[in-house]
Amino acid sequence: MKRRDIVGASAAGALLASVPAWSQAQAFPKPGATLKYIVPFAPGGLTDMMARTVAQKLSEAWKVSVIVENKAGGNAQIGAEQVAKSAPDGSSLLAITLTHAANVALFPNAAYSFTKDLRPVALLAGSPMLVVVPTGSPIKDFRDLIAVAKTKQLNTGSSGNGTPPHLTMALFNDLNKTQMTHVPYKGGAPSMTDLIGGQLDVIFSNFPESMAHVKGGKLRALAICSLSRHPMVPDVPTAMESGMPGLFVENWTGAMIQAKTPDAIVDRYSREMIKAMFSADVEERARLQGFRVTRKGADEFAVFLKSEIDRWSRIIRMAKITAT
C-alpha cells in the first residue's frame, strides 16, 4: 500500500472512530428521559439550591426531566456511593462539595473510590468561609483573634468533624501555630446558637449560616476567607488583608458522574452546565445566596479537585482529624 493510501486509510479510520462518540452525544439524553441529580445533603442548603437551579436549566435546554434527589447521610457518602455504583450512561449526576475532597482522607475504607469511581463534570460556584464572634466579644478584629489565640485557649464550634468549618479552624491553627478547642455539633444552626449565647468564642462558618446573624447584629464578622472582599459584606476584610494570606477557604460545589461514562456525554453535561452558570438569573440567584460563580469545565475541575484533595488530606493528617 502506498504512503498516501496509508495516510488516507488512517484519516478515514479516525473519522469513523469519532462518529460513535459524536452520535452518542447527539443522542443524549433520549427524548422523554428522566435524569437524576443526586444531592448528598438535606434539602434547603446551598448545594441543594445550586443543584436545583442547574437541574432546571438542564431540563429546559434538553426538554427532559431532571429530578433532584436528596440522599443525605454518612457525611455525604451515601449519595456519592449511589452515583459511583450507578450505570455509566449519564442518567445520574452527583452534587459534591469541599466535604467530598476531605472525605478521601477521612474515609480511606469507603465502599467506593471517590477518585476512581467518579469523574469531574463541572465546578459551578464557591461560598467563602466567614470568621465570626459574638458582638460582645473582646476580640475586635482578625489580627486580635490571631494574637489572642496564641495566649488563650479559645473554643470554636462546627457542624461536625471534618466539615468545612472544622477544616478551616484546623488550617488557622496550622498557620498560626495555635490549638483551639474544637466542639462538633450536629449541624451549623446549633453551633450558631451557642456562639451567639457566648458558649463558644469563634466559628469559621459557612457564609450563609452566619450572614443573617451578622446582618442582624448578633455576630461580628472579623474576616472573610477569600481572595477579595464579598459584596454582601464589603466592610469585612479578607484574611489576607488581616495578616493571614494562607487562610483561603471556599466551600465550593460542583458535579461528578460515574467514572466510565463516555467522554461525549460528560462533555455535553459540562458545556450545558457552564452555559447555565452564565445565565444572568442564575448568577444573581447565586450571588444572593452568598455564592461566587466559578464556571470550570471537566478538565479544569479535575485539576482543582486534585489540589483540594491533596490540600485537605495534609491538614487532616496534621490535625489528626477523624470522622467521629
Rank of each mutant, 00 (worst) to 15 (best):
108 P>W: 11
69 E>G: 02
84 A>Y: 04
91 S>P: 12
267 D>Q: 14
301 F>Y: 14
2 K>A: 10
248 F>M: 15
10 S>Q: 13
143 R>I: 08
27 A>M: 05
68 V>I: 01
36 K>Q: 15
140 K>I: 01
96 I>K: 03
220 R>N: 10
215 K>M: 06
68 V>M: 05
164 P>Q: 01
55 A>I: 03
240 M>I: 10
103 N>Q: 07
294 T>C: 06
119 R>C: 01
9 A>P: 08
60 E>D: 11
285 R>E: 13
267 D>I: 10
156 T>E: 13
156 T>Y: 14
205 S>I: 14
31 P>R: 10
131 V>K: 07
221 A>L: 00
17 A>W: 14
253 T>F: 10
167 L>T: 06
261 T>W: 01
70 N>P: 03
84 A>E: 07
132 V>R: 03
80 A>E: 04
60 E>Y: 05
312 W>Y: 14
202 V>S: 08
74 G>W: 01
42 A>H: 05
50 M>T: 01
105 A>S: 15
127 S>M: 12
279 S>Y: 14
174 D>S: 15
215 K>V: 02
44 G>V: 11
57 K>F: 08
101 A>K: 08
237 P>W: 02
156 T>F: 13
49 M>V: 00
37 Y>V: 06
160 G>T: 15
205 S>H: 12
184 P>T: 15
273 M>K: 10
150 K>N: 06
44 G>K: 13
25 A>V: 10
248 F>D: 15
279 S>F: 12
8 G>T: 06
210 S>V: 04
11 A>F: 08
281 D>L: 10
238 T>W: 00
24 Q>M: 05
92 S>L: 02
215 K>A: 02
191 S>F: 05
207 F>K: 04
228 S>K: 13
144 D>G: 09
273 M>I: 15
154 L>P: 02
72 A>K: 07
32 G>D: 11
176 N>G: 09
291 F>S: 05
291 F>W: 12
103 N>H: 00
202 V>F: 12
293 V>F: 05
29 P>F: 06
41 F>E: 09
46 L>M: 02
277 M>S: 00
167 L>C: 03
190 P>D: 04
141 D>V: 09
228 S>V: 11
232 M>R: 09
269 Y>V: 00
270 S>H: 08
167 L>K: 01
62 W>I: 05
250 E>L: 15
26 Q>M: 10
181 T>V: 15
254 G>K: 08
163 T>D: 03
26 Q>D: 08
235 D>S: 12
147 A>N: 10
75 N>E: 10
84 A>F: 03
30 K>H: 04
156 T>Q: 14
237 P>D: 07
315 I>E: 05
27 A>P: 04
72 A>C: 04
279 S>A: 14
106 L>H: 03
226 S>K: 03
96 I>F: 05
56 Q>L: 07
